[in-house]
Design a protein around this nucleic acid. Structure first.
Length: 137
DNA sequence: GCCAACGTTGGC
DNA sequence: GCCAACGTTGGC
């Protein structure tokens, strides 16, 4: 079981959009970055992830679960790009902002803090627990 | 809206 | 295979 973080601009695909998809889930398509794709290739069904809103509120707002492993991205003909499907599991009661992550010394190695441009990131089990706790879960 | 950081592309 | 130019992302 591994942990991840998915970043999305809420005006393009928000947590509310993800929740509306329900248990069926939705393709995490549109990723055109090799590092992010390689992360998705490593995902297994049942892996959990944080859902992060970039650009606007900059906070972790929900928990998602991988419900389909990497497959071709339906939004391109280019066979290089693959994506997984994810479904919403539960909201984070107290969204965890980027500032909160930066302020917590235990999260100083978090990819979100150090490489803000990577859109699909790994999260360590220790970071997972800390962020859940900060979020009130 | 600006700009720094980063990734990708393409000429050589 | 290097590197300059360019495009994109995302925090501020």
């Amino acid at each position: 079981m591994a942990y991840w973080l998915f970043k999305s601009e809420p005006n393009v695909w928000s947590w509310e959009d993800q929740v509306a998809k329900g248990a069926e889930g939705e393709e995490w398509d549109g990723v055109r970055n090799y590092q992010a794709r390689n992360n998705m290739r490593q995902m297994k069904v049942g892996d959990l992830g944080f859902f992060y809103h970039s650009q606007t509120t900059r906070e972790i707002v929900g928990i998602v679960e991988v419900c389909a492993e990497a497959h071709p991205d339906s939004t391109t003909e280019d066979a290089r790009w693959e994506c997984v499907d994810i479904r919403a599991v539960e909201p984070v009661p107290n969204p965890v902002s980027l500032d909160m992550c930066k302020a917590d010394p235990r999260l100083s190695e978090m990819v979100l803090v150090n490489n803000s441009r990577l859109s699909v990131q790994p999260v360590t089990p220790a970071e997972w627990d800390i962020v859940r706790e900060l979020g009130g879960l």
